[in-house]
Design a binder for these strands. Structure first.
Lengths: 337, 337
DNA sequence: ATTCGCTGTCGAAGCGCTTCGACAGACTAT
DNA sequence: ATAGTCTGTCGAAGCGCTTCGACAGCGAAT
């Protein structure tokens, strides 16, 4: 293992000079710099991460806490994780992967040990146990998601309220009057993750303004659950022609069942989904959808943290404006309805 | 930030004693141990990761290199990542998330800087550029996947050869004679990731022994590609009654198209998939499938590394035996065929 | 010619921990 | 009673780096 001292000796300078070449924190003459850089290359030197962290009290690592559950939003989480890792590298940071399993203890461990300089938390609940710890520590953090109170915190999320409103507006514009919302599994509402409620609130209040009727049904994914849910919906509101789906594992079952019942999409029934673009494009009908901006959230989170670690920027709640992409699953409401 | 020295002072012992309490590397009297542990709790002490890494040349971190691509096997990769993170924590390790983007440089960086004690590599190609580096370094590593030559390496993977054979055996036992294999996208074969070829080889040679006919067609996911592929298959082999699908994004399109063409599953046509259980269960027909043992691979990789870091165990190639779960998509071949 | 302020370099201290050798004291075996 | 063996604890060295203050050398300003 090559050390700073060896590089220094090889280049005929002192260790501190090499360090300054590396960090750029003091000016170094061009000739010296080149000589040092040459030595670094020749010897294949890599600074020791531990020593660096100890001396500078900076680990150049960002911790990313992902939910343990793999039953929901897997592609979204993956996309966020990859965006975080990629963006972090761009700024010279590495990413430590934590699972939600450890809960608040993980936060304590990371802040206490100096393992990471900052944290990104996903799957934030309204009254998340980790929040008090984040507020106490002076280590920067970003939440992906929105808790009940955000004072002293930095958050980024899709504006789910606006998303709900946007979906219903689109359907209204096409002449649909009776809207059904296929929501997340009941467990999601019980866990108080917030985004599902926010979507619903935004959707309902816009629907009220536009004079639409809304029926909301939580739904586990899969064919069996969807069969029951759909039957109930058409029972209660036979005139339903617009669907908003927020559960990606309900999308394909819904389409299959509608087909099976002889209801054509989009001629008889329109469907808007809130899901990653990939799901929308790969479905059996290309879905009009509002995408979940996973990449953008991941990138924003890292960039905010980097800025904060550099002494720039403050707390901040960013709600990303939803964008609705029209594809093949929505069309004018049928004349007879 | 609380340091070892402060704990030592608080407990009225020397710093080294506290260190030995923490590591258990020397015997400590019960009374002293308890006093120290008490102080640790009272002060909320967490050892500084950097200092520890520097002094012990052990970071207690395992690096996990995941592919950057999010177009394939996302749930599998996520499951592996989570299994790795969870298992690692169980053994006192944390996980550093690297993307494949950096390629061999990432390997150099990690081994050179002592950022991690060991690495797990996913998405291994037959002639992977990272392999020479792994062979050089004395840092333990595990590949998830199988390169062309495995000498001096540790690998774990599903036994895709046996998987192919198992699928074809199952169909043969049910009386199917004409089998079509829906493979991965052509790009996968060109990238030489190996598993697709191995599946095919195993499948073909078992089919030959059993006297079955096999037609193999690579296939991009999605409905349009599947439509073309399926048409060609029934064109060339109208008597095809058994399908083996290795591309999870082709599964649902295939089922939909078969339904649409009036071919009932499993009465007219049987389908075996090679995919995560979750996909198999959530499909519109519950699929007979061979699962990809993501958790098991992740866990094995970590446990092997931990053993190696503790000075136990050596190089080793582990191929996990496939298990076929019979669900609702396979049945006896139709009488007339 | 003297002073001043740069620029570029060096030496040394110290970050918080692990680990090695030393050793006091309590036992056991002779 | 003596030597030998443990057990439990301590002090000190050092891991490889960053960073602070010091300072030599130089050109610009007086």
């Amino acid at each position: 293992m090559v050390t700073l001292a060896e590089v220094a000796q090889h280049a005929g300078v002192s260790a501190s000079t090499v360090s300054y070449v590396l960090s750029g924190k003091r000016s170094i003459s061009t000739t010296t710099r080149q000589r040092v850089e040459q030595s670094i290359r020749e010897l294949g030197y890599h600074p020791n991460a531990g020593a660096r962290a100890l001396a500078s009290s900076r680990s150049n690592i960002i911790a990313l806490m992902i939910p343990l559950r793999t039953d929901m939003y897997v592609p979204v989480m993956m996309e966020i994780a990859i965006a975080v890792a990629t963006t972090a590298r761009l700024h010279g940071y590495d990413v430590l992967l934590l699972t939600g399993e450890e809960g608040p203890d993980a936060v304590r461990r990371v802040t206490g040990s100096g393992l990471a300089d900052a944290m990104i938390l996903m799957d934030v609940e309204l009254e998340d146990e980790r929040l008090p710890l984040l507020r106490q520590t002076d280590q920067p953090s970003v939440l992906i998601g929105l808790p009940a109170t955000t004072s002293g915190l930095t958050c980024v999320d899709l504006d789910f309220g606006a998303t709900g409103a946007l979906c219903v507006e689109h359907l209204a514009k096409l002449g649909h009057r009776d809207i059904a919302v296929i929501g997340e599994a009941p467990a999601v509402y019980e866990r108080h993750t917030g985004f599902a409620e926010r979507t619903l609130d935004g959707l309902r209040s816009r629907a009220r303004e536009l004079g639409l009727r809304v029926l909301h049904r939580p739904c586990e994914g899969g064919y069996d659950a969807m069969t029951v849910t759909l039957a109930r919906i058409f029972d209660e509101r036979p005139g339903t022609t617009g669907f908003v789906v927020q559960n990606e594992s309900a999308v394909e079952p819904l389409l299959a069942l509608l087909r099976q019942q002889g209801r054509a999409v989009p001629e008889d029934v329109s469907v808007v989904a809130i899901c990653p673009d990939q799901v929308a494009v790969q479905a059996s009908v290309r879905l009009t959808s509002v995408a979940i901006p996973a990449q953008e959230m991941g990138r924003y989170a890292v960039e905010h943290l980097v800025a904060k670690l550099d002494g720039r920027g403050g707390d901040d709640v960013v709600l990303i404006a939803p964008e609705l992409t029209v594809r093949a699953s929505t069309g004018p409401a049928p004349a007879g309805s």
